[in-house]
């Protein structure tokens, strides 16, 4: 197993480097010059000033040289300097990453737990009213745009009944500590995490339901029934466990993209995460910051894929690691 992990890590590093190079050029293909954006914000843009900015941030160097400088930095875990925010990229991402992880992991947990639970019920009561109700409920959240669900949530829970805060990570200026701070953050977390989680929940519900119905028809389930096992045991131990493999695959793919996928949720709820940081960096053509976020997101996808492969082994002992 160790050699499997080592191999995957090595491959991951190569993939990551390839992603860095690709992104480096892709970003520069987009029209727009960071120096012009910054000069524009300053309320004037004479050419000398724009030229000065380009020199200051190394944008006047040939592209291959800029790439080399960047890759050298990445190898030594230095993601460069943000032109616009005038701070090291690792610092900027480091400040935002915890909030994003809290949001996306909570949303991920909500979507996975509720999705598998609802999917199991829907499969267990397939063809009944409960099945239809669950399916419709899940599809509603999948079909509705996230920003709209978020705004409706704010309208209902913040404006109308005033149960939950409409924006932010914590109550600004309250200076809470300990448990009261945790409760405060949790209250701020509920709406964004539910909004994001309910969107992904639908796919898990549908996937679990379909997969369980398929497994239920297999011979070993009949054998289990013939042995006289209770329905609950059959569902839990035999059907669900076998049906989970495609769900785990999907979860692996989703978990990596959750960070990038939180841009809209973070924007509407003013959640101080890296999704929003990425969006701003894109609009401002803040190349280093944007590349830095991409590197982190790509690394996350690779790490979660590795974790997924390891979880396969736990869910299905028949799978062996190829060394």
């Amino acid at each position: 197993m160790l050699s499997f992990v080592a191999q995957r890590v090595l491959k991951g590093v190569i993939v990551l480097l390839a992603i860095v190079v690709l992104n480096f050029f892709l970003i520069r293909l987009a029209p727009g010059d960071p120096a012009v954006v910054m000069a524009g914000e300053a309320g004037a843009s004479d050419q000398v000033f724009v030229k000065q900015l380009r020199e200051k941030f190394g944008l006047d160097k040939p592209l291959p040289e800029q790439l080399l400088i960047y890759v050298k930095g990445v190898v030594s875990l230095d993601l460069g300097f943000s032109f616009r925010q005038q701070a090291p990229v690792t610092k900027l991402i480091g400040e935002r990453l915890p909030a994003t992880l809290l949001l996306t992991l909570t949303a991920f947990a909500i979507s996975l737990i509720l999705g598998v639970l609802f999917g199991t019920f829907a499969a267990r009561f397939a063809g009944t009213f409960l099945d239809t109700a669950i399916t419709v409920f899940a599809l509603i959240f999948y079909a509705m745009p996230i920003f709209w669900v978020a705004l409706m949530g704010i309208l209902l829970f913040s404006v109308t009944v005033d149960w939950l805060p409409s924006f932010g990570y914590e109550t600004v200026g309250a200076n809470l500590t300990g448990l009261s701070h945790a409760v405060d953050v949790a209250k701020h977390l509920i709406m964004p995490a539910m909004t994001l989680g309910l969107f992904f929940m639908a796919t898990y519900t549908r996937m679990t339901r379909a997969s369980m119905l398929e497994v239920k028809r297999l011979d070993f389930v009949k054998t289990a029934r013939a042995k006289g096992l209770s329905d609950a045991v059959i569902q839990r131990r035999h059907v669900l466990r076998n049906a989970l493999l495609p769900v785990v695959t999907l979860a692996g793919v989703h978990s990596g993209t959750l960070i990038g996928g939180a841009v809209i949720t973070e924007t509407v709820f003013a959640w101080p995460g890296i999704g929003r940081l990425m969006y701003d960096a894109l609009l401002q053509r803040d190349y280093n910051l944007l590349l830095g976020v991409f590197v982190i997101c790509s690394a996350m996808v690779l790490i979660f894929n590795l974790i997924t492969d390891l979880v396969y082994r736990l869910v299905d002992p028949r799978i062996e690691f190829a060394s």
């Binding site: 704010i154 404006v159 924006f167 509407v268 003013a270």
Partner: peptide, 22 residues
């Protein structure tokens, strides 16, 4: 005594923040 500048990226959310007294 103090000024808090609140960062709220979404325009609709900024309106709601005012409406809800935040």
């Amino acid at each position: 005594d103090e000024i808090y500048w609140q960062i709220i990226p979404d325009a609709a959310a900024r309106s709601v923040a005012y409406e809800t007294g935040k």
